[in-house]
Design a protein around this nucleic acid. Structure first.
Lengths: 223, 223
DNA sequence: ACCTGAACACCGTTCAAGT
DNA sequence: ACCTGAACACCGTTCAAGT
């Protein structure tokens, strides 16, 4: 992450940062799987092997990408005096950043969340739930519950659309979801078919926040 | 899925079922990514191209695998008179089946949940929440919330272990989690480090069920 | 120290040909 | 109708060689 002293030798053509930039751009442009080492190298005008100078292998690139995204989130800390507002803002910010890079979502859910930035995010959740008045055990379990819900909801939302680079605007995705649901045979799935008319915004920000609030309600009830 | 009438022609060497069996075995043995068309074909003693006779492409194999797992779950319906017990049993059964095939979890969260068995599972959730006394809107949103939590929690749990074929026994995974957490520097992540001592079973069945109950509490509170 | 080209062991998928 | 071998355009990674 830091480069303390440069050793002698030929000039570096790249930086770890540049490799991650290229990987993220490919992910955003051409979807998951597009961030291959060979395509990253090509985008940087360098031979594939050269990438191995900066990161040891493919999975290191993926982990570093996850850490960068979480680091950006952690550094954009709001920090007001209302724990509930802060928690909702944090959850919404995570969702905003991940839906902006849908190709990166599988990386988050595919690898262990044990990097420094992932730990820092967990620490922030624990702090928020402490401010909420939860006991240590409830806070620890609650933080894991919130993380599970938040990542699961984002993953389902991102997976819902046939993957092709960037995510469509939320209004379009909701419309597509409703259109798809209206095609469900009511004879076989009566409740699912009926649910189309029940609410206009079945997925999207509103549903995400609704779910988060039910989770927080459940935590308060228990405390 | 069904084979109504066989057309004339040479004998079929395989069935779609056999292809999926081989794919799942490879997934269980060698982890995600092991279920390549070429390895499936090799395991079945057939040329790679031959697989395309039964399923149109790789993603069709993955979708069919997901549908089979959800189908098994749907067909193992318990159905008592206590909606809460039924819901918890269903959630536990899903978790049990997915942790038995950790390599299949990314397939579930990577593709849209819109196959017949996925719809049927959604239908069952809606029915359970209707029995819980929830109004139609709350049931629809609640079903989506439960699905998000349940899949997110399972994905985090499966991703927590360095992926290598089958999942270790839960007791071992909890011990490994605790060991890893005890290595977290307390100076930098005080709350995370303190959480190690807070509860002996921080992940696993107990945490999963605890989270589900908080979600259900939140739904009841809101209703 | 960092780059390169060449190679190895893989992929998914398509094509043309056999029966 | 279903199989096969051969081929195409890819992968991640390693090795040996250049500067």
């Amino acid at each position: 992450m830091t480069e303390p002293r440069r050793r002698p030798g030929p000039k570096r053509a790249l930086t770890e940062e540049a490799v991650l930039d290229a990987a993220l751009t490919l992910l955003d442009t051409d979807g998951p799987g597009a961030a291959s080492i060979r395509r990253i190298a090509a985008a940087l005008g360098v031979s594939p092997n050269s990438v191995y100078t900066y990161l040891p292998d493919k999975s290191a690139i993926e982990q570093a990408l996850v850490e960068r995204l979480l680091g950006d989130l952690n550094r954009a800390a709001p920090g007001g005096d209302d724990w509930r507002a802060d928690l909702e803002a944090l959850a919404l910010d995570l969702r905003r950043r991940l839906t902006a890079h849908p190709g990166a979502v599988p990386l988050l859910l595919g690898g262990a969340m044990n990097g420094p930035e992932a730990l820092l995010l967990g620490e922030r959740l624990l702090d928020l739930l402490d401010r909420a008045g939860l006991a240590a055990t409830e806070a620890a379990r609650g933080a894991y519950l919130i993380m599970s819900y938040v990542l699961g909801a984002i993953a389902l939302e991102v997976a819902d659309v046939p993957r092709a680079g960037a995510l469509a605007p939320e209004r379009d995705r909701i419309a597509a979801r409703r259109a798809a649901m209206s095609q469900v045979p009511a004879a076989m799935f009566p409740r699912t078919a009926a649910a189309v008319d029940v609410t206009a915004t079945w997925i999207g920000t509103e549903q995400y926040l609704w779910g988060l609030r039910r989770v927080l309600d459940g935590l308060s009830t228990h405390a």
